[in-house]
């Protein structure tokens, strides 16, 4: 996985709460067997609407999504994360993420930055007044930044320490776990024999 330290890119204001995984990518787009190509399904139901934010030229090259609370609720589909990444997003900012979505983001290398609701509101206003403006997501200092001068927005975001460390280092979880293979083997030797198995 590519390490993530800091990213500055066009901010996209998605003024909606409860953006569930069926909104991010509907099930009919989940049929690929690869990790790429899911950008065609991203926000599929809204992409036909000319007023939808990604259909406006200034935001089309966006890479930092700024969404309302409860982003990513619903299904466990990691395709939702891949669709955002395949489109070009590197980070999503929201006051609250669904657990599985946040976990999937951490595994796949998309930064899910949880900020105070007021910060989202200020970013929305800033991005609406300055279409195409950039937002910086700095994982090292755990801050989001946008704008300049007296109105500049700068605030901290939440991400758990372990995920942050892994993203900064670009580490693969499986490699880390396999370095503890002895612990797993030891554990397996003490499992009760009556636990079920799928093959006899």
């Amino acid at each position: 996985m590519e390490p993530f330290t800091t990213h500055t890119g066009v901010g996209v204001p998605l003024r909606r709460s409860n953006v569930d995984t069926d909104q991010i990518i509907p099930a009919v787009y989940l049929k690929r067997v690869t990790r790429t190509g899911f950008e065609d399904g991203l926000f599929a139901a809204w992409r036909n609407d000319p007023s939808f934010v990604l259909n406006q030229a200034e935001y089309a090259a966006g890479s930092v999504l700024v969404a309302g609370p409860d982003f990513g609720t619903g299904s466990s589909r990691e395709h939702a994360v891949w669709a955002l990444q395949n489109y070009g997003f590197r980070a999503v900012i929201s006051p609250r993420f669904a657990d599985i979505f946040r976990g999937n983001s951490g595994k796949a290398g998309l930064v899910a930055a949880q900020v105070d609701e007021k910060v989202v509101q200020r970013l929305w206003d800033h991005l609406a007044e300055n279409p195409g403006a950039t937002v910086t997501v700095d994982l090292e200092s755990r801050t989001v930044r946008a704008g300049e001068g007296p109105d500049a927005i700068e605030d901290s975001f939440d991400i758990d320490d372990y995920t942050r460390w892994r993203l900064l280092e670009g580490l693969d979880d499986i490699d880390i776990t396999l370095s503890h293979a002895d612990d797993i083997t030891e554990f397996e030797q003490h499992r009760p024999a009556w636990k079920p198995v799928t093959q006899h």
């Binding site: 599985i100 976990g103 999937n104 595994k107 796949a108 776990t177 396999l178 293979a181």
Partner: peptide, 13 residues
């Protein structure tokens, strides 16, 4: 429920 990266993690470990 888990995502696909975690599915891979469970398969491997």
């Amino acid at each position: 429920g888990i995502g696909t990266s975690e599915v891979e993690h469970v398969l491997a470990t």
